[in-house]
């Protein structure tokens, strides 16, 4: 266990060094990159992906995957609008109900995966289509707009000079890191991913662990959906399309093994920051969007190659 821990830290060290190098390089390219205003703003832009990536780390550590997060985000946005506008519920109630619905969406994923033993990739591939379809069907492509001013605090406002959603992201980072790193639940998560049969034999509630994690994934995607609606002040059924790829890229870049059993929240956070810094910094230094995508793809492959090479040397 200590050996794996060490090799994990090694990936994060490499990532941290890479991040510092990238930040330094980008700062020399544009004097507008390393400013407080820009950095805080980038935090605002990455909050939704970040929130979902935190729970995705748990999902991937168990050896699973959740492709339906983008669709759940879209469905939550639509439901928020429907609950508030069409059913006339007070907005705070609508927000809670929409997030609860997202949690149910996640729970359904978990049930299909644990009860029916459907591999997570297929289960969430199907619900990716299903949830997006529900969002389209329920909304009939209509948008709900005209939210009260206080609602925009969540997505457009700030608290003590820092964007509101960045506080939420920060709080969840701490919670996720503690849960994954220090609790029995975290250990059960690692054990499930490292060796599921072994974990079952040693009395770990594998199915319960997975069920909780997929439900949490839905809940957090729902929370991200509400924040997203607040940030852009409207609901659309195509919100969050392609979110899953961004999220998985960040998590994998952060060193979480897609085979399960390995990964940390710190890694995911570093991966997120690296991705966002590249997107923003390259744009500021005049690289176009298509070029930025290429660079992110290269960095993803190279980072994992580098980390693999180093850890193999370490193994002797």
């Amino acid at each position: 266990m200590t050996a794996t821990l060490r090799s994990l830290l090694r990936h994060e060290t490499i990532l941290a060094i890479l991040l510092v190098l990238v930040l330094a390089a980008l700062a020399t390219q544009s004097d507008r990159f390393f400013t407080t205003a820009n950095l805080l703003n980038q935090g605002r832009l990455m909050a939704e992906v970040g929130l979902v990536a935190l729970v995705m780390t748990f999902v991937i550590v168990t050896g699973g995957i959740d492709l339906s997060v983008g669709s759940i985000l879209g469905l939550t946005a639509i439901l928020l609008g429907v609950f508030w506008h069409n059913l006339g519920l007070p907005l705070p109630v609508a927000m809670v109900l929409a997030i609860v619905a997202a949690g149910i969406g996640g729970l359904i994923n978990g049930l299909i995966i644990t009860r029916f033993k459907v591999p997570p990739l297929i289960a969430t591939l199907a619900t990716l289509a299903l949830y997006r379809g529900l969002a389209e069907g329920i909304s009939q492509a209509r948008s709900v707009r005209g939210y009260p001013e206080w609602f925009f605090v969540l997505g457009q406002g700030e608290v003590l000079g820092v964007p509101t959603q960045l506080w939420i992201l920060g709080a969840l980072v701490v919670i996720a890191a503690v849960v994954l790193g220090l609790t029995t639940f975290g250990r059960a998560t690692y054990a499930t991913g490292a060796n599921e049969t072994g974990a079952r034999f040693s009395g770990i509630g594998v199915d319960r662990t997975k069920l909780l994690i997929y439900t949490a994934s839905g809940l957090v995607a729902g929370l991200a959906g509400v924040i997203f609606v607040s940030r852009v002040s409207t609901t659309r059924s195509d919100m969050g399309t392609g979110l899953e790829l961004d999220v998985i890229t960040a998590v994998v870049l952060g060193g979480t093994s897609i085979f399960g059993g390995r990964g940390t929240i710190i890694g995911t956070v570093l991966g997120l920051i690296l991705m966002q810094a590249l997107k923003n910094g390259l744009a500021l230094s005049g690289v176009k969007g298509d070029g930025t995508i290429v660079v992110i793809g290269l960095v993803l492959i190279l980072a994992i190659v580098a980390s693999n090479l180093f850890s193999r040397e370490g193994d002797g």
């Binding site: 195509d238 919100m239 392609g242 298509d290």
Partner: peptide, 20 residues
């Protein structure tokens, strides 16, 4: 601009150009 007609990405592009 974005490679897909995506509201979120379009917003990020504009945001970055404001900063630049």
């Amino acid at each position: 601009g974005p490679t897909q007609a995506n509201i979120d990405q379009q917003i990020s592009f504009i945001d970055n150009y404001i900063t630049s």
